[in-house]
Structure formats: structure tokens, C-alpha cells
Design a protein around this nucleic acid. Structure first.
Lengths: 226, 226, 226, 226
DNA sequence: CATGAATGAGGCTTCATTCAT
DNA sequence: GATGAATGAAGCCTCATTCAT
């Protein structure tokens, strides 16, 4: 029998070990692993999983939450580092955002399947906390954005971030396909699939942000012209 | 025992009956139905499913293909109906596009889960055909777009359509959550979830197309100003 | 793979084979067997059980129903064979009843645990049918009894049968204890446990019936005396 | 960590607390609770249960013993309070017995499932003590009975009590069914299920005792008549 | 004494697919 | 062609009991 985790830290690390194992398997398989496999990968007995999580879905939410929190936490510095000129901000943000996604590589895939995984057997309690935490982080980041860009943001900071996320999700859902499938997608019009997810995303985010900033300015100018 | 279906016509109709049943169940349940249920709903025996489809995944791909083809087919008339002025085109397209999605309601959900469903046990053959067909349709629609808007499109018609699709996917993935979950998402910053998918999508598509057309023009103008 | 049971009889016999297996195991173990064991004992795969039964509990109810129906069916001839004189009827009935229980040996044990087994996950549908069938059989037997003994029964035939059953259940619950436990019950006052279930039951049933017949007559007589 | 309980008194109270908790949960749930739940309800750790009891079954036997002892203890005064005339004794006893069962409400349910629970993993030692204690109490009560009713009892006091208990068990086993199931038992011949346990039991006990007393007398009288 | 994490066998059920008829 | 019984590998979860702390 493994040594019981009695101290606070140990308790935490056991939970973390299970989450790690689950994440590792998810990355390897592309599917959310079975409880049995998670336990095996973490080196504990099947039943032990249920000491730390209420259900399989609960593990998933915990993973999602951790990933989201890290993403949001590391978003603030990026926003604060932005030059406030609308010409440069979009490009700067997009580059750093995409880089960030590379460093927190699990949010996107996890988030993209969260409907399939949570379709039933909702861990309501965990979901509530996820909502609170992510919501709070998002608000904060949104406010930061508005403060930085003032009128250009028109108090829609959180919205822009959510749209950015929408774009990310959409691209991922489209492009995260097994390599075997990718070979099949050889039609010329589907060239997009041969460019990478990150490349494509950066372009798209730049456009989105430019649309949200420069366009508005242009519109303002053209209005003032007439 | 039902009478064997031999003629081409009959072969087709058996397949179609199964696809219909599968689609109906998918809509009702929000989950891809079991083979057993599909057969029952189509009024045939379980084994019969495997006379017309190689596997469960094969059914899914067939459904996806049919939906995609209808979507693309009905996209061309919309594009051709567009006024070529960049001020009005985005709004006009977005409105009709969203309406179209309402009339071909299965593409979006089906497409959004296609990774989860097809993660393993790939029906390579079916996927190839899907690729060929969708690719061809997309190219055609893209060309149509370029022809209509000329320089504003800069030979990126297919790309714009794909980006539109990306947006659609992203929004769907984010917003298609069980009603029970939606109640949980009550954080103010998550207001987006309380607006509807279609509303939100129309706004986003308008922005995207404006970004791809008017913005470019505005940029050009502002460049010529200086 | 075992040969599929396609004909009506075969379908029936597969079901019966599973019921047999379940019953055999129940007799051997004294506990209701697991689905896995039932399947193994019947020589089929685990999943096959669910072709014929909705749930584990459903098997139990089916077993109970079959046993009850046989018991009731064989009760009628016994009742009809009874001499209508109240002096001899109780003894005659008791003897034959106890003999019958020996020939339909599963009703009593099955019935005695039916609460523990069905405490949750009620197979409502099966239970309804059980109720209808047993109820009908009981009514019939009750009527038979009343017809035979006329005023002595005062239209309480079904009740007397139910009381007989109550007695049977009670004795069984008390006396069906593992042999190991029986050795322990060596206190002189618990002599009853060393007499057998059948012996004890016969005595008790005679008393019950005498109480329901002769006593009433005696009471009548003594009333008419005064 | 709770302070060690060393003194005799404390030892006893720990045990009692666990038994209380187990009983409370059993009443609430209708099922014998899990060890984990018992511990939680008693406010101790799971492992502590095994300091005071050898096994889950051991708890059950302890509960049964306590309940039996209380029942028997409170039976003696009832017997002694009985009028010795055979006309009134049965009714008087039945009424008080049923009332007593209402005040010691756990003996009946516990006893009725004792086979299911103790089918395996017998706590032999505990069972022996249960046997000794219950046996002794029963003998005593039986003797009391015989002394009170003299020849009418014919030195079968303990037997009559055991028969009374048999009746109780039988009725309980038949009538303690989930409310949901009760709704199903709507066949007219099963009217008994719609009368309550206590009502039905009182009637039955009166009959039993009358059968054991008055009937014998009546028989004697009628014999002397002829 | 007391804790509670850890074990791991075992329970019930589902379902894509095969194959004898 | 069509049937549907049969398969059997998973899947998720529970729980009595042990044991390191």
C-alpha cells in the first residue's frame, strides 16, 4: 500500500498526481482516459481516484479549471505589456497570445471537448466554482484591457477576450484532427489545414483585434470627415 | 423478414432511412445515438445497419457529408444575391447565412463533435470522399465570392468562408451547453452565454466580413489620405 | 458463439436456462447470485443476460413469479381434495401443504428475501405482473376454500391462505440459518430450532386452521349452550 | 485526534455511540448502512469502528442483541400483569405486545433481515453470546407464562412466545415493502397489505393465543359434553 | 488509541460488432 | 438481403477492511 498522504501538501500532491496522469493520457490518446487508466498511470488503485474526485467528470472539470486559471493569470501581464497604439497592439497581442497557448497547451483541447465530456452527469458543484473563478479572471482581464485602450474598447474588454477565445476554439475544432485524417484533406481549397493551428490563429486574432480597434477608429475618422 | 432491397433506388432509400433515423435521434438526444437505437428507429434489424455502413463512424461521416453538401449548395445562391458594395454585403451575407444555418440545422452540431467521434476507427474511404466533395464545393463558392467582390477579396474567397466557418464552430462549441449548465454560468462577464447562438453569430460574422472588406478599404483610404 | 435462439421455444428456453442457473446458484449460496455468475453458470456471456432481463432485480421477480404461480396452481387440487369436516381438514391441509412446499422448494426462500433484494431499483413493470398473477391465483384459491367450507370460512378464504403464508414466512425467516449458526443455538429454550422447518410448520398450520374453524364452531356451540 | 478512551465507561460509550449511529441510519435508510457512514454519523474515523467491532456483521449482531434484550426484559412485566382468565388474556397480551413493539421499534426489522446480513462472515463469538442471552431471557419469560396460566400452558410457554415471534416476523416480512411497491399491490385479494402491520399483528396474535388457550378449553368442554 | 488514505475485488450495465439462421 | 441473439471487453463506481502515521 502506498504511503498515506496525511499532510496538507501530500494531500494536494496526490490530487495533482492524478490530474497529471489524466492530462498525460489525454494528450497521448486524444480522448479523455478511463478512470481505471488514470489510476494505473498515477500508480494508485482504482478506488483511490474517488478519494479525491467525486466522479470522472469531476476530474475533467478540475483539469479545465487549472488550465483556465493559468491561462487567465498569464494573460494579464501580456495585456499590461501592450503598447496602447491601435496599430501595434493587435499584432503584439496575437503573437504573445499564441505563444502563451503553446505554453499552456491543454486549455484549448480540454475546453474544446468539454461539451462532449460533460453532456451528462454534471458535477454541478465543480462547475459552479469553475464559473466563478473563470468569470472573475475574465472580468479582471477585461477591465485591464479597457483601462489600457480607453475609448477604443468602449467597455467591451471581456467581450473581445471572449471573441478571441471563440476564434481559438473554432480553429482548434476545425484543425485538431488526427494526422491520418490530415493526409486525406488534400483538396487545394483546404490549404488552411496544411498551415498550422498556431499560424492560422495568429493571423485570425490580428484581424479580429484590428477589426475591434482600427476599424472603429477608421469609422470615426470617416464620420468626422463627412 | 423484410423483402430484400436490390434496385439502386432501394439501396439508396435504405441508407437514407438509416441516416434520417440517426439524425433524428441525434437532434433529440444531443448525443450520437447507439447503433441499436438507429436501427430500431429506422425499423430495421441491428445487423442491417452493417449492410449499408461499415461502422458507426461511417454513419456519422455520411451524415456530415450530406449536411455539408446541402450547406454549400445553398451558399452559392446567397453569395450570388449579394450586393457587391462592401458597406452592405457583410450585413446581408450574415443575415442570410445565419438563416441558412437555421434551415440546415445539423451541420454545425455534427461538425463540432466530429473530432470526438472520429478520434479512432477512422472510415478513411468515407473521409476521402467527404474531403473531395466539400473541398470542391468550397472552392467553387470561394471563386464565386472572388468574382463578385474582385480586388476586395484578393483571391481569398475560400479562406473567408473558412474563417466564417471557424467563427461558427467556435461559437457553437462555446455556447452549446446543456441548459442545466447554462444556469450555472451566471457570472456577469459571461453575459455572452445568455445571448443566443444565432444573434451572437450574426454580429460576429458581420464584423469578420467587414474586417475583410471595409476595413481594407478604410485602410486604403486612410493610406491615401496621408 | 452459442447458436442463436430464434424459434419461440428456444427463446423461452434461453430465458429458462438463465432462471435455472440463477435458482441453482441461489440454492447453493443462500445469496442471490451476481449477474456475472448467473451468466457463467448458464454458459452464456454476461451481456446475454440483458437480452432476456432488464436488470438483476428483474430476474429475481421472474423467479418469484414462477415459483408463486406453481405453488398456487398446485394448491387448488389440495383444497378440493379436502374433507369438509372441520376436524380433519386442518391436519389434512397442513400435511399436504408442507409436502407441497417441499416439492416447490424455492418459493419460501425467495419470497423471504424479496424485500432485501428489491429494496431499490424496483422493476415496477415485472412487479405489477407478479401482483396481478399472484392476486388472481390467490382469489381463486380463496373462493375455492370458501365454497368448500361454507359458513366456517365466512368469506375469508384468501385471508386464511395469507395467514398460512405469513406463518410460513415467519418460520422460515427464523429457521433458515446457516448450519454453522445452528450449532450455536444450543440453548434449551431454543429447542424449536432443532426441530425442522417442515415439522414445525405443519404443527403451526394445523393450529392456525383449527383456530379458524373448530374454534369458531366451539364458540358457536358454547354460545348456544348458554 | 480524539482523546483515547480508556476507562471501562468510555469504552462502553464509544461502542454505544457507534451502535446508535448505525441504528439511526438503518431506520432512515431501510438498509444496513456502510461502515463509512456509521463512522461518519458517530463522529469518528472509519478505522475506529474496527477498534470496537470485529466486522460489520459484528455491529449488526450487537444491535440485534441489544434490541432483543430490551424486548425480552419488557416482556416479563407484561406477562405478569396478565389476568389469568383465558378469555381476556389473549386480547390483553396482544395489545400490550404490539404497543411494546412500537416502543422497541428496531427488533423486528433487524431480526427479519438477520439471515441476509449474516449469511457469510459469521461473527461466531458474538452469535454465541446472543444465543445465550436471548435463550436465557426467553426461558425465563416462558416459565413465567407457564406459572401464570398453569395447565393451560402445559409447559409450552417458551414455545408460545416463539410462535408469537414467528407470526411477527412473517407479517413483517410480508408487509415491510417500499411504499412504491405497495402502490402496486392493488389486487383486491391483497387487501391485507393495505391494513397496517400493527393492526394485522394484533388480530393475529389474539387468534394465536386464543388458539393456544381457549380452544383447548373449548375442546375439553365439548369432549365432556358428549 | 485514533486517523483516514489506500486497497482491489467485485458489482451492474452498455454497446459496437459478428454470425448462424 | 435481413434478422436479432450472442459476444465480451470496457466502463464507472462502491465498500469492507487494512495499515502507516
Amino acid at each position: 500500500m502506498a504511503r498515506p498522504a496525511l499532510s496538507e501538501e501530500e494531500r494536494f500532491s496526490r490530487r495533482a498526481a492524478l490530474l497529471d496522469a489524466a492530462l498525460r493520457l489525454y494528450r497521448e490518446q486524444g480522448t479523455f482516459p478511463t478512470v481505471s487508466n488514470i489510476a494505473k498511470a498515477a500508480g494508485v488503485a482504482k478506488g483511490a481516484v474517488y478519494l479525491w474526485f467525486r466522479s470522472k467528470e469531476d476530474i475533467f472539470v478540475a483539469l479545465l479549471e487549472a488550465a483556465f486559471l493559468e491561462l487567465i493569470a498569464r494573460l494579464s501581464p501580456i495585456i499590461e505589456s501592450l503598447d496602447s497604439r491601435p496599430e501595434s497592439a493587435p499584432g503584439a497581442f496575437a503573437a504573445q497570445y499564441v505563444k502563451l497557448l503553446g505554453e499552456v497547451p491543454d486549455v484549448v483541447p480540454l475546453s474544446s471537448v468539454h461539451n462532449s465530456v460533460l453532456r451528462e452527469n454534471l458535477p454541478v458543484e465543480s462547475l459552479s466554482r469553475l464559473n466563478r473563478n473563470v468569470g472573475a479572471g475574465l472580468s479582471e482581464a477585461g477591465t485591464l484591457l479597457e483601462r489600457r485602450f480607453g475609448p477604443l474598447m468602449e467597455s467591451r474588454g471581456a467581450d473581445l477576450l471572449l471573441h478571441t477565445w471563440t476564434l481559438t476554439m473554432g480553429l482548434w475544432v476545425m484543425m485538431d484532427i488526427p494526422d491520418e485524417t490530415k493526409k486525406i484533406l488534400d483538396d487545394p481549397s483546404l490549404a488552411i489545414f496544411r498551415r498550422g493551428f498556431h499560424t492560422e490563429l495568429e493571423t485570425a486574432v490580428v484581424q479580429l483585434w484590428r477589426g475591434a480597434m482600427a476599424c472603429r477608429r477608421a469609422a470615426a475618422e470617416s464620420r468626422s470627415e463627412s
